[in-house]
Measured scan of single mutants.
Amino acid sequence: MEVVDPQQLGMFTEGELMSVGMDTFIHRIDSTEVIYQPRRKRAKLIGKYLMGDLLGEGSYGKVKEVLDSETLCRRAVKILKKKKLRRIPNGEANVKKEIQLLRRLRHKNVIQLVDVLYNEEKQKMYMVMEYCVCGMQEMLDSVPEKRFPVCQAHGYFCQLIDGLEYLHSQGIVHKDIKPGNLLLTTGGTLKISDLGVAEALHPFAADDTCRTSQGSPAFQPPEIANGLDTFSGFKVDIWSAGVTLYNITTGLYPFEGDNIYKLFENIGKGSYAIPGDCGPPLSDLLKGMLEYEPAKRFSIRQIRQHSWFRKKHPPAEAPVPIPPSPDTKDRWRSMTVVPYLEDLHGADEDEDLFDIEDDIIYTQDFTVPGQVPEEEASHNGQRRGLPKAVCMNGTEAAQLSTKSRAEGRAPNPARKACSASSKIRRLSACKQQ
Score class of each variant (00 low, 15 high):
Cys73Ser: 11
Leu55Pro: 09
Arg415Asn: 14
Leu290Gln: 00
Pro323Asn: 13
Phe231Met: 00
His27Ala: 08
Asp330Ala: 08
Ser325Pro: 13
Ile79Gln: 13
Ser59Thr: 10
Gly61Trp: 01
Asn119Pro: 11
Gln220Leu: 03
Asn181Gly: 00
Val243Arg: 01
Leu341Asp: 14
Ser299Val: 05
Ser142Pro: 10
Val368Phe: 04
Pro38Met: 07
Lys388Ser: 08
Arg106Ala: 12
Thr250Phe: 07
Lys108Arg: 10
Gln123Lys: 01
Gln382Met: 13
Pro281Tyr: 11
Ser216Lys: 00
Phe255Trp: 05
Val243Gly: 02
Arg147Glu: 00
Gly233Tyr: 06
Glu291Val: 09
Ile35Pro: 15
Asn393Gly: 10
Phe298Trp: 04
Lys124Pro: 03
Gln112Tyr: 06
Asn412Val: 10
Lys83Ile: 10
Lys235Gly: 09
Gly251Asp: 04
Ser240Val: 02
Lys41Val: 10
Phe204Ala: 06
Gly394Cys: 09
Gly10Cys: 11
Ile192Cys: 12
Asn181His: 01
Ile99Asp: 02
Arg42Ser: 06
Ser31Val: 14
Val114Trp: 04
Ser240His: 06
Gly163Leu: 02
Lys388Gln: 08
Leu285Val: 01
Asp327Ile: 14
Ile267Asn: 06
Pro315Gly: 09
Cys158Gly: 02
Arg103Gln: 09
Ser428Gly: 14
Phe366Asp: 14
Leu102Arg: 02
Ile172Pro: 00
Phe366Trp: 14
Leu9Met: 06
Met289Glu: 00
Ile79Leu: 02
Cys418Met: 13
Gly385Ser: 13
Pro315Ser: 11
Glu396Ile: 14
Arg297Pro: 00
Pro89Glu: 15
Ser193Ala: 04
Glu375Leu: 06
Leu386Phe: 03
Pro387Asp: 14
Ser307Val: 10
Ser169Ala: 07
Pro413Val: 11
Ser401Thr: 05
Gly394Met: 15
His154Pro: 00
Phe219Ala: 02
Ser299Cys: 10
Val128Arg: 01
Lys44Cys: 07
Lys62Tyr: 10
Gln123Trp: 03
Ser142Thr: 12
Gly61Ala: 10
Gly346Glu: 10
Ser378Lys: 15
Glu317Met: 01
Gln432Arg: 14
Ile161Val: 02
Val320Ser: 12
Pro254Gly: 01
Glu165Ser: 11
Ile161Phe: 00
Ala397Met: 15
Val150Thr: 02
Phe234Tyr: 04
Pro217Gly: 13
Thr32Leu: 08
Glu165Met: 01
Asp284Glu: 06
Ser325Tyr: 00
Leu353Asp: 15
Lys312Val: 09
Lys97Pro: 07
Pro144His: 02
Lys416His: 11
Ala389Thr: 09
Lys78Pro: 00
Asn412Thr: 07
Glu375Gln: 07
Ile274Cys: 05
Ile361Met: 07
Glu256Gly: 08
Lys78Ser: 00
Glu145His: 10
Phe366Leu: 08
Arg426Ala: 02
Gly381Cys: 07
Asp343Val: 08
Gly215His: 05
Leu427Asn: 15
Lys122Pro: 15
Phe219Cys: 02
Glu33Gly: 05
Glu145Ala: 05
Arg75Asn: 00
Ala200Pro: 10
Leu400Gln: 09
Met289Trp: 00
Leu17Ala: 15
Gln159Met: 07
Asp359Leu: 13
Gln7Ile: 15
Met136Leu: 06
Ser428Thr: 14
Gln137Ser: 11
Met392Gly: 12
Ala76Phe: 00
Val390Ser: 12
Val390Tyr: 11
Asp350Trp: 14
Thr367Pro: 11
Tyr272Asn: 15
Ser213Thr: 06
His107Leu: 01
Thr328Arg: 13
Lys96Ser: 07
